[in-house]
Structure formats: structure tokens, C-alpha cells
């Protein structure tokens, strides 16, 4: 898989648990041990109560579509062969929003609220990208 040419996650220590969990087929978000707020992306303190006591908590993987776009132009060389390609924004059942891609068949004009569930696509030896499949 060394030939993977699309952008990979940046080397962000705060995000390392997210990617470790993804590789193990677990979708997770940062959760505050003090106030219970679940948020993504992670931060050094809880954005709701400023607590430093935070952990990564698995989420159900169920989500609803918020919006989506179709790229007809590639801004990265690795996507040149794929245009047009879609990017979606999903709302996890637990609240946080996530940018992702659809996986599997997609109707012509998917509507907001369409139910989705996470799947993982291995793109390198160390990175699995969470994507979302439309639930029939």
C-alpha cells in the first residue's frame, strides 16, 4: 500500500488515539470525564468546561447525513483520477460532526437526515479512514 497518493492525516499528537482506534475498527470522539461533553476534533481542554481530564470514547458509528458536495476539480494529485468525487458531512448519533466520504452505493441526490453507518477503509499499513455507508 506504499503507492497511496492521497493526503494522509497530519502528525497531530492529539489525534493519535482517533487513528489508533480507527485502525482497530473503532470510531471514537474525545469525551470529558468531568462534564461528559463529547466533541470532535479533540482539544487540550474540554471546550465546554475547560477540564483537562479527557478520554477517547467509542461511539456507535451510527450517523445522519447533514450535507454533501461533489468535487469536479482535484486540489490534490491523489484525487485527480477520481473526479467527480463526493465528500459528506455527517452528524454522529452522539452529536459531533464529521467530514467523510460515502462508501458503497449512493442515490442521485441523498437528502439530509439519510441514516448512515461507519465503515473503515484501510489506506496504508497504519491508517484506516472512517467512511459512511447509507443504511438501507
Amino acid at each position: 500500500m506504499s503507492a497511496y497518493r492521497k493526503p494522509l492525516p497530519t502528525d497531530d499528537p492529539l489525534m493519535a488515539p482517533f487513528w489508533q482506534n480507527a485502525k482497530a475498527r473503532r470510531l471514537s470522539v474525545q469525551s470529558c470525564r468531568d462534564c461528559g461533553d463529547k466533541h470532535f476534533p479533540p482539544g487540550p481542554v474540554c471546550p465546554k468546561c475547560l477540564s483537562e481530564d479527557q478520554e477517547w470514547e467509542p461511539v456507535s458509528g451510527r450517523a445522519a447525513l447533514v450535507s454533501w458536495v461533489r468535487f469536479h476539480r482535484a486540489y490534490w494529485d491523489g484525487f485527480v483520477g477520481e473526479v467527480p468525487y463526493d465528500v459528506c458531512l455527517v452528524a454522529l448519533e452522539e452529536g459531533p460532526l464529521l467530514v467523510s466520504n460515502f462508501s458503497g452505493p449512493v442515490p442521485d441526490d441523498p437528502k439530509a437526515g439519510t441514516p448512515l453507518e461507519v465503515v473503515f477503509e484501510d489506506v496504508t499499513d497504519t491508517v484506516a479512514l472512517p467512511k459512511f455507508r447509507i443504511v438501507a
Partner: peptide, 27 residues
């Protein structure tokens, strides 16, 4: 961060942020 954070899914341009907004607004 939102300009580049979502790059692994191919979501990076300024215009795409507004396209995402307008799709939902339109709906």
C-alpha cells in the same frame, strides 16, 4: 484548521466549505 484538517477525505478547498453550506441551505 478546517481548511486542511479534512484533507484525507479530499475536502480542502475554500469553495467546498461554501458548497457544503449551500447544499444544506438549499434543501
Amino acid at each position: 484548521l478546517s481548511y486542511v484538517y479534512h484533507a484525507p477525505w479530499g475536502f480542502t478547498s475554500q469553495g467546498s466549505l461554501y458548497a457544503m453550506m449551500f447544499r444544506r441551505f438549499s434543501e
